[in-house]
Design a protein around this nucleic acid. Structure first.
Lengths: 285, 285
DNA sequence: AGAAACTGTGTATGTCATAAACGTATTAGT
DNA sequence: ACTAATACGTTTATGACATACACAGTTTCT
């Protein structure tokens, strides 16, 4: 749906490696397997042509640099190529399509390793730490939260984080399917709460001043248009300086997660409740 | 006149309404206020030219139809215009930009009213119902979850849903900032859990068969590449038919929410815990 | 009547992803 | 060492796309 655009590319089964006849064509991997092999650098190296001046790593690095500096929208094939001093089309020798490039970029954005396992068996603390770490990645590369998702992570870095998250959650005693479900919940929530934070920040930046009531264009506009009969609760909310404040329930410990602490704590509370309900909680007591 | 029609940008402060000198220019609304006025149809009607054959409503409707049928990516100005039998540029008479059109579309996608208030004071049931309703909207117009967000909703429909959600949550006794925070959490979570569901479904569709282990390309690919030393938990998870099953903790009552029931229940559990922790729970007891 | 405001249209610009064909450097197989 | 295969980076071209700009016709206000 909205997610992946590129259609012509990459969907059809390739006959071989690069030019359409690279491999012996009987053992060609198709679809996702191919993507995984690419991501993991499991490629044959019987290079016959001239020694490449460019490399996939260089392309991805340049793309990441552009995204870091100017956001994901600034990443175009032309732009990345210019940055490298090559032609646009040269990139296609090292990357199948832009979609491909984005996949590589995303994995590259998670190159920092998650924290190692903790042995005290406190799954909640471990999971919180994991969330914190994942969030830190996003803060380093905010665009990464906006890369269109195409299935579960397949790259070494993404999987390393998955592994670490599962480990923390499974420490609660949940079984594999449950742990995975929780991990998915956390992963998506983090990504999207982060996006929420960014969106709100951007919205605030785009209108003039910071988010306070009265001064805020949005609030003022709404007031002029909302019928108190129909939107009483909303107006009640607007009437208190809702948008100016620190989120409620803000706790110092969550500070590291910024305004997201509140939301994340709520979600973890929910997970906690679930763990307890299964009566398999290994921690705490 | 050299300086004329809608100069597209919309970002910079306009001198007046539509064309640059529509209004008395001392009370010109700028930025978001303008957008809100547009969304609410609060426009002057001193139409002087020929009677329009096209209308904003028609444009939005056509765009929604295209998105419903072929996804958000199929929505281009050219496509919508063709659908209507007009030129591409004609659309710009009724919509400032594509971004604008998307805002209208999004509000249009939420045209169905939320359920009315319930008087039994059971905030959790009410909130669950609200989630269910919101999800139903998404199922009707999946693309709506992929429209790039630009700030809080400003249209009548979006705000109606906000109002309804706030009402349900506030029934728990939380104060305004808290309720709003929770509403934001729910709104974003819903949107994104829905997206997760869609993404997973699409991923399954794109590889061959449904999501089962062994048969799944992704799982097979990973197995070939994951070092058991480094990814033990992940492999443990893979080893159980994790992806084949119904999500754990699946309950009949959540059926209406599809596979998202589990995640939503976890989040509501977290909210519940928070409400209880404030000691202001009006419901239940 | 004439000016002003607004309609839909035609044309043009610039950006984007990417296909196709090309010359060239390198190396595997002879 | 010679040749054919093949990978490399480039050139050129195509077809979307959003949207600026200028125009000609239409309606209404003065």
């Amino acid at each position: 749906m909205g997610v992946n655009h590129g259609d012509g590319a990459r969907r059809r089964t390739r006959v071989g490696g690069d030019d359409g006849r690279g491999m012996t064509s009987d053992e060609r991997p198709a679809g996702t397997t191919r993507e995984i092999e690419l991501l993991w650098g499991r490629r044959e190296t019987p290079r016959r042509g001239p020694k490449p001046k460019l490399s996939r790593a260089a392309v991805v690095e340049a793309a990441v640099a552009v995204a870091d500096a100017e956001g994901l929208d600034a990443v175009s094939m032309q732009r990345v190529a210019r940055e490298l001093g090559f032609t646009t089309m040269s990139l296609y020798r090292h990357v199948d399509s832009k979609e491909d490039l984005l996949v590589f970029m995303q994995d590259a954005a998670m190159s920092q390793h998650p924290a190692g396992p903790r042995d005290d068996g406190d799954w909640r603390a471990g999971t919180e730490e994991w969330c914190h770490g994942a969030l830190a990645q996003y803060r380093r590369h905010p665009w990464a939260a906006y890369v269109p998702q195409s299935g579960p992570p397949s790259g070494p870095n993404g999987l390393r984080w998955m592994e670490a998250g599962l480990r923390e959650i499974a420490a609660s005693g949940l079984d594999a399917p449950e742990s995975l479900q929780i991990l998915l919940l956390l992963t998506y929530s983090l990504r999207d709460l982060f996006r929420m934070e960014q969106d709100i920040a951007r919205a605030a930046r785009e209108r003039g001043v910071p988010l306070d009531n009265e001064g805020d264009e949005w609030v003022r506009g709404l007031r002029g248009v909302l019928d108190p009969e129909e939107y009483p609760t909303l107006l009640w909310t607007l009437d208190q300086g809702t948008f100016a404040e620190e989120p409620p329930g803000y706790r110092e410990e969550d500070g590291a997660m910024g305004g997201l602490g509140f939301a994340i704590q709520r979600i973890l509370d929910g997970v906690d409740a679930y763990v307890r309900s299964t009566g398999r909680d290994r921690a705490g007591d």
